[in-house]
Amino acid sequence: MSKPGEAGLKALADYLAQDMRVCNQVIVARMQSPVALIPQLAAHLVAAGGKRLRPLLTLAAARLCGYDNQDGKQRHVEIAACVEFIHTATLLHDDVVDESQLRRGLASANAIFGNKASVLVGDFLFARAFQILTADASLDVMAILSAASATLAEGEVMQMTTQNDLSTSVDQYLQVIYGKTAALFAAACEAGAVIGESSPEWREALRVYGANLGMAFQLVDDALDYAADQAVLGKEVEMTSGKGKSPCRFWRRMNPEARKTAFSGAV
């Protein structure tokens, strides 16, 4: 039986299927390189699938704001691919940092190709993302996605520096998940609004939508790590690495009796 909303996500993907097909073509085309290992490794992650939620958000936001690409351009598709590249680059780097062996139920890229290759191809994907941005030539879109990329890195560094620290507060935890996840959701939506030439009010509304969606998404992701069967989720439950998701820290953060600070609406 499907859960509430599950049909909605599929319906969103179906509604944007044509745009997503073109987006996937752009992703494959833009990850090509004469250095064979780059498309080989990138294809491993792209082939593993995933929800493609972030590029879908860019496409949806652009369409919601009336972008009709009647000018023959495919700006929404190019920027959606750029968003996916930024996300994929962070996945490659995260799996190295976390020493993860699984990603989306398959062996992670670092498990197959090694840490050095994963880090360097992640760098390539970041660089490719910024090539797409400069080709699009919108300073607003560049500002949104480059700021989100910096926030992503900050979130990951913050997660690393708070690991094994049981005094980490709930607010700090929420800051980490905003940085590592919600910031890119927000940027994906806001960039779509810019492409759709929206009003400032609509642009802000879509940024807020994306930020809150990302917070909900990451909170559930963390909860699923401990509530779901490991094999079904395709991830590993760890407690020894000290990363943000260790169950003891998770308990400490979310235990109502142990909390020192109240949850706050961070977004």
Binding site: K3, G5, L9, L12, A60, E201, L213, L219
Partner: peptide
Amino acid sequence: KAREALALFPECEIRSLLIETASYSASR
């Protein structure tokens, strides 16, 4: 909060789908 943020957009299919996506994010 995500669903509320879309309140100022006119009703249309894609807005409904984004609202459903917000519900999915918390129930998946």
